[in-house]
Lab assay of single mutants.
Amino acid sequence: YFQGQLNAMAHQIQEMFPQVPYHLVLQDLQLTRSVEITTDNILEGRI
């Protein structure tokens, strides 16, 4: 994955969860590489 793709995914998640800091979303995406998994992590309070 290149950074631009991760940034696009992070923006997509931020639209759904504007209360979660962008850098935390991006940090999780770098591990998961998945909008779905990061979204689940937010919903389950891991982020």
Score class of each variant (00 low, 15 high):
residue 1 Y to D: 15
residue 1 Y to K: 11
residue 1 Y to N: 13
residue 1 Y to S: 13
residue 1 Y to W: 12
residue 1 Y to R: 11
residue 1 Y to P: 11
residue 1 Y to Q: 12
residue 2 F to P: 11
residue 2 F to Q: 11
residue 2 F to N: 15
residue 2 F to L: 14
residue 2 F to A: 10
residue 2 F to K: 08
residue 2 F to S: 14
residue 2 F to W: 15
residue 2 F to D: 15
residue 3 Q to N: 10
residue 3 Q to H: 07
residue 3 Q to T: 08
residue 3 Q to M: 09
residue 3 Q to A: 10
residue 3 Q to I: 08
residue 3 Q to V: 08
residue 3 Q to Y: 06
residue 3 Q to F: 06
residue 4 G to P: 08
residue 4 G to Y: 13
residue 4 G to T: 11
residue 4 G to Q: 14
residue 4 G to V: 11
residue 4 G to S: 13
residue 4 G to D: 14
residue 4 G to A: 13
residue 4 G to H: 14
residue 4 G to N: 11
residue 4 G to K: 14
residue 4 G to I: 14
residue 5 Q to W: 15
residue 5 Q to L: 13
residue 5 Q to F: 12
residue 5 Q to V: 13
residue 5 Q to H: 11
residue 5 Q to P: 08
residue 5 Q to E: 14
residue 5 Q to K: 10
residue 5 Q to Y: 13
residue 5 Q to T: 11
residue 6 L to Q: 03
residue 6 L to W: 10
residue 6 L to T: 04
residue 6 L to G: 02
residue 6 L to V: 07
residue 7 N to V: 14
residue 7 N to F: 15
residue 7 N to W: 15
residue 7 N to M: 15
residue 7 N to H: 15
residue 7 N to D: 13
residue 7 N to A: 14
residue 7 N to R: 14
residue 7 N to P: 09
residue 8 A to G: 07
residue 8 A to R: 07
residue 8 A to Y: 12
residue 8 A to K: 10
residue 8 A to P: 03
residue 8 A to F: 13
residue 8 A to W: 14
residue 8 A to V: 10
residue 8 A to D: 10
residue 9 M to S: 04
residue 9 M to K: 05
residue 9 M to L: 11
residue 9 M to E: 04
residue 9 M to R: 05
residue 9 M to W: 15
residue 9 M to G: 03
residue 9 M to Y: 10
residue 9 M to H: 05
residue 9 M to I: 09
residue 10 A to V: 09
residue 10 A to W: 07
residue 10 A to C: 05
residue 10 A to T: 04
residue 10 A to H: 02
residue 10 A to F: 06
residue 10 A to Y: 05
residue 10 A to E: 01
residue 11 H to Y: 12
residue 11 H to D: 09
residue 11 H to N: 09
residue 11 H to Q: 13
residue 11 H to P: 01
residue 11 H to G: 07
residue 11 H to F: 12
residue 11 H to M: 14
residue 12 Q to F: 13
residue 12 Q to C: 14
residue 12 Q to N: 08
residue 12 Q to A: 12
residue 12 Q to R: 14
residue 12 Q to I: 13
residue 12 Q to V: 12
residue 12 Q to D: 07
residue 12 Q to E: 09
residue 12 Q to G: 06
residue 12 Q to M: 13
residue 12 Q to W: 12
residue 12 Q to T: 10
residue 13 I to L: 10
residue 13 I to D: 01
residue 13 I to H: 01
residue 13 I to N: 00
residue 13 I to S: 01
residue 13 I to V: 09
residue 13 I to C: 03
residue 13 I to G: 00
residue 13 I to F: 02
residue 13 I to E: 00
residue 13 I to T: 01
residue 13 I to A: 01
residue 13 I to W: 02
residue 14 Q to Y: 14
residue 14 Q to S: 13
residue 14 Q to F: 12
residue 14 Q to E: 05
residue 14 Q to R: 12
residue 14 Q to H: 15
residue 14 Q to L: 14
residue 14 Q to N: 11
residue 14 Q to W: 15
residue 15 E to Q: 14
residue 15 E to I: 13
residue 15 E to L: 15
residue 15 E to M: 15
residue 15 E to V: 12
residue 15 E to K: 15
residue 15 E to C: 14
residue 15 E to N: 10
residue 16 M to H: 07
residue 16 M to L: 11
residue 16 M to T: 07
residue 16 M to V: 08
residue 16 M to D: 05
residue 16 M to P: 00
residue 16 M to F: 07
residue 16 M to Q: 09
residue 16 M to I: 09
residue 16 M to A: 08
residue 16 M to K: 12
residue 17 F to C: 05
residue 17 F to M: 03
residue 17 F to W: 05
residue 17 F to H: 05
residue 17 F to R: 01
residue 17 F to V: 01
residue 17 F to E: 00
residue 17 F to Y: 08
residue 17 F to P: 00
residue 17 F to I: 02
residue 18 P to I: 03
residue 18 P to D: 03
residue 18 P to S: 05
residue 18 P to E: 03
residue 18 P to K: 06
residue 18 P to Q: 05
residue 18 P to T: 04
residue 18 P to N: 04
residue 18 P to M: 04
residue 18 P to Y: 04
residue 19 Q to A: 09
residue 19 Q to I: 05
residue 19 Q to N: 13
residue 19 Q to Y: 15
residue 19 Q to M: 12
residue 19 Q to R: 10
residue 19 Q to S: 11
residue 20 V to N: 02
residue 20 V to P: 03
residue 20 V to C: 09
residue 20 V to A: 05
residue 20 V to T: 05
residue 20 V to I: 14
residue 20 V to D: 02
residue 20 V to F: 10
residue 20 V to R: 01
residue 20 V to W: 08
residue 20 V to Q: 03
residue 21 P to Y: 05
residue 21 P to T: 05
residue 21 P to G: 04
residue 21 P to M: 06
residue 21 P to K: 05
residue 21 P to F: 06
residue 21 P to D: 07
residue 21 P to Q: 06
residue 21 P to V: 05
residue 21 P to I: 06
residue 21 P to L: 06
residue 21 P to N: 07
residue 21 P to R: 05
residue 22 Y to T: 05
residue 22 Y to S: 05
residue 22 Y to I: 08
residue 22 Y to K: 06
residue 22 Y to L: 10
residue 22 Y to A: 06
residue 22 Y to D: 02
residue 22 Y to N: 04
residue 22 Y to Q: 05
residue 22 Y to E: 04
residue 23 H to G: 07
residue 23 H to P: 06
residue 23 H to N: 10
residue 23 H to R: 07
residue 23 H to W: 14
residue 23 H to A: 09
residue 23 H to V: 08
residue 23 H to Y: 13
residue 23 H to S: 09
residue 23 H to E: 11
residue 23 H to C: 13
residue 24 L to I: 09
residue 24 L to M: 09
residue 24 L to S: 05
residue 24 L to F: 07
residue 24 L to P: 02
residue 24 L to E: 05
residue 24 L to Q: 06
residue 24 L to H: 06
residue 24 L to A: 08
residue 25 V to P: 00
residue 25 V to M: 04
residue 25 V to R: 00
residue 25 V to T: 03
residue 25 V to H: 00
residue 25 V to N: 01
residue 25 V to L: 10
residue 25 V to A: 04
residue 25 V to E: 01
residue 26 L to H: 04
residue 26 L to N: 02
residue 26 L to A: 03
residue 26 L to P: 00
residue 26 L to D: 02
residue 26 L to Y: 11
residue 26 L to Q: 04
residue 27 Q to D: 07
residue 27 Q to A: 13
residue 27 Q to K: 11
residue 27 Q to L: 12
residue 27 Q to Y: 11
residue 27 Q to N: 09
residue 27 Q to R: 11
residue 27 Q to F: 11
residue 28 D to M: 07
residue 28 D to Q: 03
residue 28 D to I: 06
residue 28 D to E: 03
residue 28 D to V: 06
residue 29 L to G: 02
residue 29 L to H: 00
residue 29 L to T: 01
residue 29 L to R: 00
residue 29 L to A: 01
residue 29 L to I: 07
residue 29 L to W: 03
residue 29 L to N: 00
residue 30 Q to A: 11
residue 30 Q to D: 06
residue 30 Q to G: 07
residue 30 Q to H: 10
residue 30 Q to N: 08
residue 30 Q to K: 13
residue 31 L to W: 11
residue 31 L to V: 12
residue 31 L to D: 07
residue 31 L to R: 13
residue 31 L to P: 00
residue 31 L to H: 11
residue 31 L to Q: 11
residue 31 L to I: 13
residue 31 L to T: 10
residue 32 T to S: 07
residue 32 T to I: 01
residue 32 T to L: 03
residue 32 T to Y: 05
residue 32 T to A: 02
residue 32 T to H: 06
residue 32 T to K: 00
residue 32 T to D: 01
residue 33 R to M: 14
residue 33 R to E: 07
residue 33 R to Y: 13
residue 33 R to K: 12
residue 33 R to L: 14
residue 33 R to A: 08
residue 33 R to T: 06
residue 33 R to F: 14
residue 33 R to V: 06
residue 33 R to H: 13
residue 33 R to D: 05
residue 34 S to V: 03
residue 34 S to P: 01
residue 34 S to W: 04
residue 34 S to L: 03
residue 34 S to K: 03
residue 34 S to N: 08
residue 34 S to G: 02
residue 34 S to T: 02
residue 34 S to D: 07
residue 35 V to K: 09
residue 35 V to F: 09
residue 35 V to E: 04
residue 35 V to P: 07
residue 35 V to D: 02
residue 35 V to N: 03
residue 35 V to L: 10
residue 35 V to G: 04
residue 35 V to T: 06
residue 35 V to S: 06
residue 36 E to K: 13
residue 36 E to D: 09
residue 36 E to S: 12
residue 36 E to M: 10
residue 36 E to A: 12
residue 36 E to P: 07
residue 36 E to V: 09
residue 36 E to C: 11
residue 36 E to I: 09
residue 36 E to N: 08
residue 36 E to L: 11
residue 36 E to T: 09
residue 37 I to C: 08
residue 37 I to Y: 07
residue 37 I to F: 07
residue 37 I to A: 09
residue 37 I to W: 10
residue 37 I to R: 13
residue 37 I to T: 10
residue 37 I to V: 11
residue 38 T to G: 00
residue 38 T to E: 01
residue 38 T to A: 01
residue 38 T to I: 01
residue 38 T to H: 01
residue 38 T to N: 01
residue 38 T to P: 00
residue 38 T to Y: 00
residue 38 T to F: 02
residue 38 T to S: 03
residue 38 T to Q: 01
residue 38 T to R: 00
residue 38 T to V: 02
residue 38 T to W: 03
residue 39 T to G: 04
residue 39 T to F: 07
residue 39 T to E: 04
residue 39 T to C: 10
residue 39 T to M: 13
residue 39 T to Q: 07
residue 40 D to K: 15
residue 40 D to W: 15
residue 40 D to A: 15
residue 40 D to E: 14
residue 40 D to L: 15
residue 40 D to G: 14
residue 40 D to R: 15
residue 41 N to Y: 03
residue 41 N to H: 08
residue 41 N to I: 02
residue 41 N to L: 02
residue 41 N to K: 06
residue 41 N to G: 02
residue 41 N to V: 04
residue 41 N to T: 02
residue 41 N to C: 10
residue 42 I to H: 00
residue 42 I to T: 01
residue 42 I to N: 01
residue 42 I to L: 07
residue 42 I to W: 04
residue 42 I to E: 00
residue 42 I to K: 00
residue 42 I to P: 00
residue 42 I to M: 04
residue 42 I to R: 01
residue 43 L to A: 06
residue 43 L to R: 13
residue 43 L to N: 07
residue 43 L to M: 09
residue 43 L to V: 09
residue 43 L to Q: 08
residue 43 L to Y: 06
residue 43 L to W: 06
residue 43 L to G: 03
residue 43 L to I: 10
residue 43 L to T: 07
residue 43 L to H: 05
residue 43 L to S: 07
residue 44 E to P: 01
residue 44 E to H: 14
residue 44 E to S: 15
residue 44 E to L: 13
residue 44 E to W: 13
residue 44 E to I: 09
residue 44 E to F: 14
residue 44 E to Y: 14
residue 44 E to R: 15
residue 44 E to V: 09
residue 44 E to A: 15
residue 45 G to N: 07
residue 45 G to C: 08
residue 45 G to L: 05
residue 45 G to D: 04
residue 45 G to T: 02
residue 45 G to I: 04
residue 45 G to Q: 05
residue 45 G to A: 04
residue 45 G to S: 05
residue 45 G to V: 04
residue 46 R to F: 06
residue 46 R to G: 03
residue 46 R to I: 06
residue 46 R to N: 05
residue 46 R to K: 10
residue 46 R to E: 02
residue 46 R to Q: 04
residue 46 R to L: 08
residue 46 R to C: 06
residue 46 R to T: 05
residue 47 I to R: 02
residue 47 I to N: 02
residue 47 I to L: 14
residue 47 I to T: 03
residue 47 I to Y: 05
residue 47 I to C: 05
residue 47 I to H: 02
residue 47 I to M: 07
residue 47 I to G: 03
residue 47 I to E: 01
residue 47 I to F: 08
residue 47 I to W: 06
